[in-house]
Design a protein around this nucleic acid. Sequence first.
RNA 1: GCAGGGGUGGCAGAGCCUGGUCAAAUGCGCUAGGUUGAGGGCCUAGUCCCUUAGUGGGUGCGAGGGUUCGAAUCCCUUCCCCUGCACCA
Length: 934
Amino acid sequence: MKLNLKAIAKRWQKVWAERKLFEADPLDKPKFFITVPYPYVNGYMHIGHTYTDMRPEAFARYKRMRGFNVLFPFAFHATGTPIESAAKLVAEKDEKQLSIYKDMGFKDEEIARFCDPKNIIKTFVKAARKDINTFGLSVDWRRSFFTTELNPRYSKFIQWQFRKLHKAGYLTKGSHPVVWCHKDNMAVGDHARSEGEGEVPEELTIIKFKADDVIFPCTTTRPETVFGVTNLWINPNLTYVKALVDGETWIVAEEAVPKLEAQKHKVQIVEKHKGEEILRKHVHNPLTNTAIPVFPAVFVTAHTGTGVVMSVPAHAPADFAALEDYKKQDSAARNIVPISLIKVEGFGEIPAAEACKKYNIKDQNDARLEEATREVYSKEFHTGVLLPITGKYQGLSVQNVKQKIISDLVDAKHAVKFYELLNPVVCRCRTRCHVKIVDNQWFLAYGNLQWKEKTHKALANCKLYPEKVRTQFMHVIDWLKDWACARQLGLGTKLPLDKEWVIESLSDSTIYNAYYTIAHHLKNIPVSQLNEAFFDYILLGQGTIDKIKADHNLVEQMKQEFNYWYPVDFRNSGKDLVQNHLSFYLFNHTAIFAEKHWPVGIGVNGYVTLQKMKMSKSKGNVRFMRDLIKLWGPDVVRMSILTNAEELDDADWDDDVAASNSQKLIQWYTFAVDNYGEGDSTKTDIDAWFVSKINACTRDMTCSMDKTLFRTALQRGYFDLQRYFKWYARRRGNILNAEIVKQFIETQTKMLVPFVPHICEEIWMKLQKQMLASTENWPVFDEAAIKPELDAIEDGIAGIVDDISTVVSLSKIEKPVKINIIVAADWKSKLFTLVKDKIKTTRNAGELIKIAMQDVSLKEHGAETAAIIQRIAKDHGKLPATVLHQEVEYQFLKDSTAFLKANFGCEIEVVKEQESKEMKAKQALPGKPAVVVS
RNA sequence: GCAGGGGUGGCAGAGCCUGGUCAAAUGCGCUAGGUUGAGGGCCUAGUCCCUUAGUGGGUGCGAGGGUUCGAAUCCCUUCCCCUGCACCA
């Protein structure tokens, strides 16, 4: 049959829209509110969205069929820098940016309009909405919106939220280090870097070594080793400056000056020197107060810190190697011996020396130094303990004492903290970045302990799909620090208390689920009427209505609607959002809303991969939702993506799977339409068995649907059920029971609705149903119709088919004329039943035999009984799940002779063991009849 | 490094919580046969090794050790893989 899946989809989407099927308003029945993070609209929806959006979609349709009033809204995110930057690049006619849009199929004149970010937003909102509709998502579009000031009503809402956060004390101001590009004059996040992805400002320490009134500020990651400094290093080839830093005279590499300035130090250069000019005989270690020399070393770079480093040859392989090098040219250095200060497992007194030997380090330029350093540092940090030379710190572990030493040094003004990038970071504009301390930064105080506690409570009350992400959530809540929630660039909403700042994109997206409940009404209210009292009254139930300018009837209605829909019952997103968005979502709800409005359920899923590769725009392996739908039609895409993975596993998109699913859907359609109402009215055990399976599959699928385990749900409710049906049809010689086939077709089709609603509607129409498939009730199962004992019979028949095949092929009889099936004697089933019971208490064959011999009928077959017991005691897995009496087994085999005859194309005879003259008859066991082929 | 999730047959992927019925579901792939004008599809059987007119033995669930009558499943150690680590959507 030729079926146009896309045309079918289009037809039913139109019907749903005309009947406003998914426009949800409060009703007198239980509600279920489902949301998904709105996509960022700087491009087309891709396959990743397909997965994350499909889960709530399937859940929404399922819940509707379960009788819930379901609200599933959808909106769009435009906050942040990417759209604005893209518009800027278009304005600058940047080739790369233009070609991105060209590749998407836009014409030059359309692209030209993208110099205005608003046009980018509008274009992609429109495109996304179209894609989502073509995909068949059951969305209430009346409530749709996009973010930023370009939507002033949303901005009003966000500003209200931030005033609330401020009043609650969760919005604070402070300074913090960021990776900064001084050319672009902005913080450079991972995505805006051409090099150095993942690099973050590391906290280093600058320790001040004094020589008269000049300070040699050493940058170090290991301030605890200050006790073991034998000398300082400077690079003789670099340019250093003598400068006034915060009123002190420092010697630092020239490159360090802008970095110091960026970190709140006042720097005034006094004079410049070549490195070799500033070597010294003596500087003073501020902690041990010993005098040490300043030596030259070429491994010192100007990129890290001040360009002045302290040398700890006992614990730093690089220092050790450099010192050895220097000893060759300066006799004064030869007296210097490494000072050990850390005792560490697996090493002797001077770990650095041992490491240099182990890695066969030649000199200070040796590439393997890096590895040697890593090994020593890591060992010392994790297992090292400070020696007596460290005075009051002795006996403490490096790990524990490090922060203490830093704060002691800083308190004593011997040191300052300094942030540095330990590996190069280069901005897209090709400028090398450094760390800047940003002032007056606004934070959401996720570090606030009371807030964390509240959020933990919210998490504890929240159902998670799957439950196993809970530990991760708990860690994230504990781990989150204050979040810089505003920036000076990008689209968004201005911070109400400080109009210089724009609220950053993750921070304006935490409680907007509440906005959906009233969004369609808001469109009819003038922006000027959306004051504080308005939102207070509707969303918090605070204040009185007389302070509100908007129409009071409407406001009352909105308040009711909010209270009807809220809280969110299920919010689904990718697993990458656990550590930010979803946790922020919990935090902010506890800050703004009453406890009854805190989130009820959160769903998390994996990523979508293509050929096991993570999707990435730069690698060019991105597939858009629209292209997939064009290729396969929405139902196939919907089904394929959900059969692919569940829980936190990644779903790998595979066109072969899609092709196979496409075929399966068409087959199901054909089968359902052709067979509905066909068949006879006879009924035997096999019919009862299939009914049992229909009910069992319905039960299992329902259970999985409730847990959003859609893959398992389809496995049980579709793939397994189809397999059972095949067996049923085979057993009935393809002439089916009409009533049962009807039940099968209806149940199966209904259970497919959440996944492939379009083709289900088409089937439903062909079956002459009055209602839409989408509005049908989810099938109920009858527990009483589920009969495991019937499985024993069917397993028995499948088993005998199996055994006969084996025996036939072993017998080398090409064309058997007769097959004898010999059913085990009844005393054997008695024995099996007995052993099955007693084996729980003992596995000793002797004891079991003794017990069995107490039974007269078993004693009669003493030798055989003993032999059988010995065999099954060794491996009681051989016992069948259900032991049937000989008569039952005989009967069902007898009943299936026609079936077996058809299968093997020869005569079939079923006899009881005691009536058989065959030698092999005594091999028969319950559930395992003997087979004789002739 | 820290945190989270994993390592099962040619592949994908169940099983692990609650140990035995697990040589391990199911799907794909592969082999043979059937159906078909051909292809596709569909149907049937097979697909770790050895043995056999059968229901027997061996090896096996990242590696090593332990608990147990018994371990893919529980405990310990170890190796490896994936994800995240922030001001970014």
